[in-house]
Design a protein around this nucleic acid. Structure first.
Lengths: 203, 203
DNA sequence: CCTCTAAAGCAATGACCTTTGCAATTAGTG
DNA sequence: CACTAATTGCAAAGGTCATTGCTTTAGAGG
C-alpha cells in the first residue's frame, strides 16, 4: 500500500507536494503524456504501468511509488483532461442558439476515440461508490448556469440547469459510452426536446 | 487466437453448437453462475479466468478454450443477464402510470451493485466500435412501443419511443454507470419531464 | 558552494495469468 | 452396444506484472 506523504510543508504558501521541482515535474509530464498517447489506441483496462513507463522513458517503480496503481493514474489523468477550462461559452443571443452550439462542441469533443476512452476509464474507476458530484459535471453545471442566467435576464422562459443536464448531457454521454451513434444532429434533437418541456419552476 | 468452430451441422434444425449435451451444459451453467457470483463483489476488469474457473470448479483451460478470454465471457454473460424477458409490462390505464411504474422497476433493477457492474462491463467491451443497436436496448424499445401503442389506442397524446429512451432510460443508465445518485424519485422526475415535452410528431 | 533528503533508478524476487501438448472423459451416431 | 470425435482435465513452460531493498541522482535551503 503506497503511504501518501501527509507531512505539512514549512510554509503554507508552498503547495502540497514536497518537491515539485524540475525533475518531478518532468516525470509527471512525461507520464501524463504517455497515458494520453496510449489512450489514443488502447483500451483503458489493458493499459499497464510498464507500458506507460516505457513510453514515458521512466522506471516503472517510479510510477508505482507515485500513483500506487494504474487505476489511480488513469483517474487522475482523466479528470485533468476533463477539467481544463479552455472552452469559451457560446453567446448567440438566445438560449436555443447557445445550447445548440454548446451541445455541438461537447459532442464533437467526446466522440473522439481517446475522449471516449477517458470517459469509460472514469466509469470503471467508480465501483462501490456513489458520488454526489463529479468534477467534469460541475464544470458543465457552471457553464449551464451562466447561459441560463443570461437567458433569464433577457426575459426568456428556460428549463432548469438539472433538466438540461438530464436531457441533453446525460443522453449524449450515455450514447457515447455505450457505443451508440451520436452526432451533432442527435445533440440538436436533444436540445429541441428540452426546450419544448414545461419549465421546472412551473411544476 | 481461439478458432471458433464454423463447421456446418448436418441438420439445419440442430443448433450451432456441435455438442450441447449434458456435460457442456453443466460446465456452462457453472461458469455463468460463477461469473454472477463474482460480479456481486468484484469489479469486472479484475475478474480473471482462473477466478471464475475455481469458483465454477472447472479447469481454467476449458474456459480459455470455449470463450477465448475473460472479456468475451463477461460480455456473453452480461447480455444474457439483460435480455431475460421475465418482466411483466405495467398496464395501469394511462401512459403516465405505465411509464412511472416501468421506470421504477428498471431503476430498482440497475442500482443493484452487480447489475451496475454488468452495465460497466458492457461499456468496457465496446471499444472502437459503434453499434446501431444494443441487445439490452432493443428489449426496452419493444416494451416502450407496446405501452405507447396502447396509449395511442386510448387516444392519448404521447412522446415517441426515441424520446422516452433518450430522456428516461439514457439519463437513468447514465447516472448509474457514472455513480451519480439515482432513485425512484429521480426516475419519476424524468417521466414527468418527458411527458411535458411537445410530442415528436408535432415537430 | 555544500549539505540534506525527496524522488528516481536498478535489480532481484515472487505471484499470477496464459498458452500448449497430451491423456482422459463423454456425448452423439449407426 | 460400439465407435468417433468433441470437450474437458492435467501439467509444464513462458511471459508479464507488481513488490521491495538498496543505490544513485538532483532539487531546495543554508
Amino acid at each position: 500500500m503506497p503511504t501518501k506523504s501527509t507531512r505539512v510543508p514549512t510554509h503554507a504558501s508552498t503547495p502540497v507536494k514536497r518537491r515539485p521541482g524540475g525533475r518531478s515535474a518532468r516525470v509527471q509530464d512525461a507520464v501524463y503524456s504517455a497515458v494520453g498517447k496510449l489512450m489514443a489506441t488502447q483500451r483503458p483496462d489493458q493499459i499497464t504501468v510498464p507500458m506507460v513507463a516505457e513510453l514515458a522513458d521512466v522506471n516503472p517503480t517510479s510510477v508505482y511509488r507515485r500513483w500506487g496503481d494504474i487505476d489511480a493514474l488513469l483517474e487522475e489523468v482523466a479528470v485533468a483532461a476533463f477539467t481544463r477550462e479552455d472552452e469559451v461559452l457560446p453567446d448567440t443571443g438566445s438560449l436555443e442558439g447557445d445550447l445548440r452550439e454548446w451541445a455541438r462542441v461537447i459532442t464533437d469533443d467526446i466522440v473522439r476515440p481517446h475522449r471516449t476512452r477517458y470517459l469509460r476509464a472514469m466509469v470503471n474507476a467508480r465501483d462501490g461508490v456513489v458520488l454526489d458530484a463529479c468534477p467534469c459535471w460541475t464544470a458543465r453545471r457552471e457553464q449551464l448556469a451562466e447561459m441560463i442566467s443570461r437567458a433569464h435576464t433577457r426575459g426568456e422562459r428556460t428549463p432548469s440547469v438539472e433538466q438540461v443536464l438530464d436531457h441533453v448531457i446525460a443522453p449524449l454521454y450515455h450514447h457515447v459510452v455505450f457505443a451508440l451513434p451520436a452526432d451533432t444532429a442527435y445533440a440538436e434533437r436533444l436540445v429541441d426536446d428540452v426546450l419544448s418541456m414545461r419549465s421546472a419552476e412551473s411544476r
